[in-house]
Amino acid sequence: MTINLMDVVGRISYKCDILFRVIDIRTENGNKIAILYGEDFRLIADAPYKDLIVIDQSTRNERSREFRSLEEQSYRLFQQEMNLLREKQEYDSTDGYKKKINYFQLPGRVLHIDGDPSYLRKCLDLYEKIGIPVTGIHCSEKEMPNKIHQQIEYYRPDILVITGHDAYSKSKGEIGDINAYRHSKYFVQTVREARRMIPNLDQLVIFAGACQSHFESLIHAGANFASSPSRINIHALDPVYIVAKISFTPFMERINVWDVLRNTLTGEKGLGGIETKGILRTGMPFNVEKE
């Protein structure tokens, strides 16, 4: 069976547990190797060409329905939480509904830098659906450390997302060795560069990492939230749910880490962080009519 670029495949040796898209095919030491990007997880992998099989459309559709169901469930839970948060804010802003006040809200502005253009589009669609002001930029993971200064200086975000693809390779070193990870060191360098510009953890909130990323190094570098504490795969949309919670929490309130993680698709094994202040600011009046 011929396998071409952009085909959706599974690894036979792994019983096709994860669907991948072929992004490159190369020859190493006389053997054909395929470079793979996860279809639903932020995972990069390489595999022998002969270990791959093209996944038929019916199987892809079935897998897709399963993931869309999980995404819809997570979105519903998130919407319920946001509705309760808005009701609380309205109660506080109107002095317990005693005063009729027209107010407006300014959620956190997001700069999302992603190593995968396809995942970036999915995330931007969800940001728009939730109502978060966002700028999305596609940039390869290796180039991120060199470009982050210019992007922060130009866009002045409240929240920075640094993500793409990553993977831990046992053959390259122990789990604590950052050189055993595909892109973790570039994410860490990018976070450090961002923190040189804005050291305050509440002035710029940072999410960094992808599948199996070196969580501890990212947190120590200055990220508020990161992946992956248990070195598991994270879902493509998980960063958006973390950002949304931060963006719509009032800046006078601190966010419990579990409150941020509970509506993600991956949970605390794939995501973690530190206590962080919210970003949302409420103002008034809104839509004042001229006499």
Results as ranks from 00 to 15, higher is better:
T2I: 09
L5K: 11
D7V: 03
G10I: 11
Y14I: 10
Y14E: 15
K15V: 05
V22F: 03
I23D: 04
E28R: 15
N29E: 09
I35W: 03
L36H: 02
E39S: 10
D46A: 08
P48T: 11
Y49I: 04
V54L: 15
D56F: 03
T59V: 09
R60Q: 14
E62R: 15
R63L: 05
E66C: 05
R68H: 15
E72I: 05
F78E: 01
E87D: 03
E87P: 00
D92A: 13
T94L: 11
L106Y: 11
R109K: 15
V110L: 10
D114P: 05
D116F: 07
Y119L: 14
R121P: 00
R121V: 03
D125I: 03
D125Q: 12
E128T: 04
I137C: 09
H138T: 13
C139V: 12
S140D: 02
E141H: 04
E143R: 08
M144T: 06
N146V: 00
K147W: 00
Q150S: 15
P157S: 06
L160M: 10
V161E: 03
V161G: 04
I162M: 00
T163F: 02
G164L: 07
H165I: 02
S171K: 14
Y181P: 00
S184M: 08
F187K: 02
F187T: 02
T190D: 01
R195F: 05
M197Y: 07
D202P: 05
V205A: 08
A208W: 01
G209C: 02
A210G: 03
Q212P: 01
S213P: 06
H214R: 07
E216R: 13
E216L: 15
S217V: 00
L218G: 00
G222C: 02
F225E: 05
A226E: 02
S227C: 14
L237D: 05
D238M: 08
Y241M: 12
A244T: 06
T249N: 09
E253A: 13
W258I: 12
W258L: 14
W258R: 13
N263I: 01
T266K: 03
K269N: 15
K269I: 08
L271V: 01
G273V: 06
G278Y: 08
G278T: 05
I279T: 12
P285G: 13
K290V: 04
K290C: 00
E291W: 12
